[in-house]
Computed example of a mutant assay.
Amino acid sequence: MGETGQPWQVQAQGGLSVPGDGAAIELPSGQSVTLVETIWNTPGPQGLATRFRFLAPEINPETGSVDFLAAADDIAWLCQNFALSRVTDEGPIPSQIIISLEDRPVPFGEADPDAVQYFEAFRVENGACIWEVF
């Protein structure tokens, strides 16, 4: 059981980690990703953040088909069309939503020099995800 008493929730770097459901999400680039986990209420540069971590094998430049620019568009789409409704339905809106794509599973907070990972941070303003320099 996680520290919260629920078997599917664990503490992660100061926040609450909830695993993804394994459902495929089709993105504008044509790639399909799955939610690895959502980490609620982690300390971020601008206050509390909610992190959505996605497995995206297609971002690997050697074996995949999605380049950085397409992945960046996918990240913005995930914030606006996936993450935004989840943070607004679950209580206070965090200061930031952080979306990450990784080409292979990497435990949160650990380094893997062979992994390809992209991260973008957004603030929520007037019902929209606004990109912030991360």
Rank of each mutant, 00 (worst) to 15 (best):
D112I: 12
P105H: 08
I98F: 01
E125M: 09
I130S: 02
P107H: 06
A111D: 14
P105A: 07
E120P: 00
A121L: 02
Y118M: 13
D103P: 10
V116L: 02
F122Q: 01
G109A: 07
Q96Y: 02
P105F: 12
P94Y: 12
C129E: 05
A121D: 04
G109K: 06
L101W: 09
L101E: 06
E125V: 05
F108L: 08
F108N: 14
L101R: 07
A128K: 13
S100M: 06
P107M: 00
P105D: 08
P107N: 06
P107C: 01
A111P: 02
P113S: 10
D103G: 06
F122N: 10
F119V: 15
P105K: 02
P94N: 08
P107K: 06
N126M: 00
V106W: 02
F108T: 13
F108H: 13
E110I: 09
I99Q: 06
C129V: 13
A128L: 12
E125D: 15
V106D: 05
N126C: 00
I130T: 13
N126T: 08
V106I: 13
A121W: 03
A128C: 00
Q117L: 15
P94E: 11
E125K: 10
P105G: 02
D103E: 03
I98M: 14
V124C: 12
A115G: 12
S100Q: 10
P113C: 00
V106S: 07
E120R: 11
P113Y: 00
I99E: 01
S95L: 01
P107T: 09
I99H: 03
S95K: 10
E102H: 05
Y118A: 03
E102K: 03
R123V: 11
R104H: 13
Q117P: 00
